[in-house]
Design a protein around this nucleic acid. Structure first.
Length: 654
DNA sequence: ATTAGGG
DNA sequence: CCCTAAT
């Protein structure tokens, strides 16, 4: 999800920590402009948090983890949205909001006040009101105070986290035994306890299924109007311990005055992939927009991969895996663990409990899902909106998403486990696993999300269904056309799989969380924590690519393509890649003019190096020679041109 | 949207 | 191939 920039959280002084891939170069250049991609992902956490709350509220949503027939693992997220929550008071859908703010929480009163204080009309006004004042919050002062406040909040554990605690408490009361629990030998349990505030109310933070630490709202830089101010928090969506702090952060975040929302969208709407949710909120809040595929804001390429396959479109996962091999009757143990865990894990389920009771002898694997990252979506909300409305908005968005049929993906060692019928044992999900071995992620319902393969560049649709001669470019050989049009590359038809496997099993080293922590000097709101978290949970290394734009599949140029390229350049010269594209590769949709330019660049390079140094499919020397010749020629032409221009200018000056 | 370059 | 800056 992307809390679209419009939100100025008063962190002008903060910089988004450079992240691996997307910002490597930027980092080098010392520029952070437009480098928020990665962080946007972090915003997922916000959702995760909210979602977590939703999930915890059995009244609203009930996540269920089903351990199917002894060994089969079949995780499903069953979401039950009660009527209550939908019909709640007035038009504001407070029901959902209330999920966030529960009783006996100082915060809540505040939030609630905001919420209840609003009327439909007010909301409506906000949108329009926000129009003009979006440029006055960027003062440094604000940011500072914000930061300060944050710190302060951080230091007051008991004062924070109330919102959630209440929810958690609720969990404790669930009649259902908590199955997704865990008592990892030492790490987790001790950890959770340590984090639990003295306050009796603050039970189980660690068991709270959200990445509270990750609550980060990121700004979009590509937004013309954005101030560039961001509130990054983390760039890792992987589970992070010390939820408490996160909670505080959340509260802080939600309550922050600094954040503002640019009012660009007066009538934003929820465009859920599912669509069923849209109508409702659209009426209520004309300031919310949820985009499923396009929300992937920052990445231009995104649009090409918006329909990424289920495998790579999951919202990311952040979870924790704790195993427990104890054989226990579901009942007794469940209660125990429940109390121990303070109730809660993202999912509790009686199903599991029941199941287990039938399978007394089977060794049980306990899982505690720390959090779910929800697939990103975009939100725009007037800065004049109240915190309460923001909450609702997010809540609604989450609800919409969750309600649209998300699937749960299981990842082991960063790889997706697709064999639903395999047993945990077979799959390797056992107590022997390390804490970070298992992961869960929410992914769009395949049935609703068209399989990947960008429409425009779908290899499945052969580049050229109807091979047609290249226009103006007088073909030297017919084969050129053929090649270009049909793109005989054998692997194209496997693109889908290719991408998947790539995504699943080839986590880039640069995507490591370690890498991030290393570079987090840029000052995030959660420095130390990141480190800590990362240390505990190494990283499931889910290729960032899945979140960000997919890297295009590599498609080496064939000799015929090179031939065509050379020919075109010979005629058109360098620097006219668009024309080259149009003339020689108009039918090769996957070859952009940038690609051609790049290829030419490499060709020139290749031609200059010794044959021994060349790699890949050899290019006929003849072609390389032509490359050098053409390159030299056009370079000269270019030089001449420049010279002439200079001459002209000089003359004018004189 | 293109072009030019660095990575 | 990707990413950006500059057009």
């Amino acid at each position: 999800m992307v809390l679209q920039k419009r939100l100025d959280y008063g962190f002008n002084g903060y910089q988004v920590p450079p992240v691996p891939r997307a910002t490597r170069s930027a980092r080098r250049r010392g520029s952070f402009k437009k480098k928020h991609e990665e962080n946007q992902i972090c915003a997922f956490d916000l959702l995760a948090i909210v979602a977590g709350k939703l999930l915890l509220d059995k009244k609203k949503l009930l996540p269920v983890l089903v351990i199917h027939q002894r060994t089969k693992i079949n995780v499903q997220l069953l979401i039950v949205l009660s009527k209550e929550s939908l019909v709640t008071q007035n038009d504001l859908n407070l029901g959902l909001a209330s999920a966030l703010t529960k009783p006996d929480c100082a915060e809540r009163s505040n939030a609630e006040r905001l919420v209840s204080g609003q009327t439909k009309n007010e909301i409506g006004t906000f949108a329009s009101k926000a129009e003009g004042d979006s440029s006055e919050y960027r003062e440094f002062g604000d940011c500072k105070s914000e930061a300060a406040t944050k710190r302060a909040v951080k230091d007051e554990p008991h004062k924070s986290g109330m919102v959630q605690s209440s929810t958690v408490v609720n969990m404790c009361n669930l009649e259902d035994p908590v199955v997704l629990d865990a008592k990892p030998p030492a790490l987790v349990s001790s950890d959770s306890r340590a984090k639990v505030p003295a306050c009796g109310n603050h039970i189980s933070n660690s068991s709270y299924p959200t990445n509270q630490d990750d609550l980060h709202v990121v700004s979009r830089d590509d937004d013309e109007n954005s101030s560039g101010c961001t509130h990054p928090i983390t760039t890792k969506k992987f589970f992070r311990p010390a939820p408490r702090i996160g909670d505080r952060r959340i509260r802080k975040f939600l309550a922050s005055k600094c954040w503002k929302v640019a009012p660009r969208l007066k009538d934003a709407t929820v465009s859920n992939s599912d669509g069923n949710f849209k109508p409702v909120f659209r009426k209520r809040q004309n300031c919310y927009r949820h985009q499923r595929s396009e929300r992937i804001y920052p990445f231009k390429k995104r649009k090409h991969f918006a329909y990424s396959s289920p495998s790579n479109s999951d919202g990311g996962m952040s979870c924790e895996f704790v195993s427990d091999l104890s054989l226990k009757g579901s009942n007794g143990d469940a209660s125990v663990s429940r109390s121990r865990m303070h109730g809660a894990t993202g999912a509790s389920s009686s199903f599991a409990g029941q199941r287990t009771s039938f399978l007394p002898r089977d060794s049980h694997v306990k899982l505690r899902i720390k959090s779910f990252s929800v697939p990103e979506f975009l939100i725009e909300i007037p800065e004049s909106s109240t915190v309460g409305s923001l909450k609702r908005t997010v809540m609604e968005a989450v609800t919409a998403i969750l309600g649209s049929g998300l699937h749960v993906g299981v990842l082991l060692q960063g790889k997706k486990v697709r064999e639903d019928n395999k047993t945990l044992r077979q799959t390797g999900i056992s107590h022997n696993n390390q804490l970070d071995a298992l992961g869960f992620c929410l992914e769009p319902n395949p049935s609703q999300t068209p399989p990947s393969l960008s429409p425009g560049d779908s290899p499945f649709l052969l580049q050229c269904d109807t091979p047609q001669p290249i226009r103006r470019y007088p073909p030297t050989t017919g084969e050129v056309h053929q090649d270009i049009c049909a793109d005989p590359e054998p692997h194209v038809n496997n693109l889908g799989n290719y991408i998947e496997s790539d995504h699943d099993s080839a986590p880039s080293p640069t995507d490591t969380s370690m890498d991030k922590s290393t570079n987090s000097k840029a000052l995030v709101a959660v420095p130390a924590m990141n480190v800590e978290a990362l240390a505990v949970v190494p990283a499931h290394q889910k290729s960032k690519r899945s979140e960000i734009a997919q890297r295009r599949i590599r498609r080496p140029f064939s000799v015929t393509e090179v031939e065509a390229l050379v020919h075109a350049v010979e005629k058109l010269g360098t620097g006219r890649w668009r024309d080259v594209k149009l003339q020689a590769f108009d039918n090769a949709k996957h070859r952009t003019y940038v690609d051609l330019k790049d290829k030419w660049k490499t060709l020139v390079h290749t031609a200059r190096i010794s044959p021994q140094q060349r790699r890949g499919a050899p290019v006929p020397q003849e072609l390389l020679d032509r490359v050098l010749t053409a390159h030299a020629y056009w370079s000269q032409q270019q030089a001449k041109q420049q010279f002439k221009h200079q001459q002209a200018e000089t003359c004018l000056l004189l």
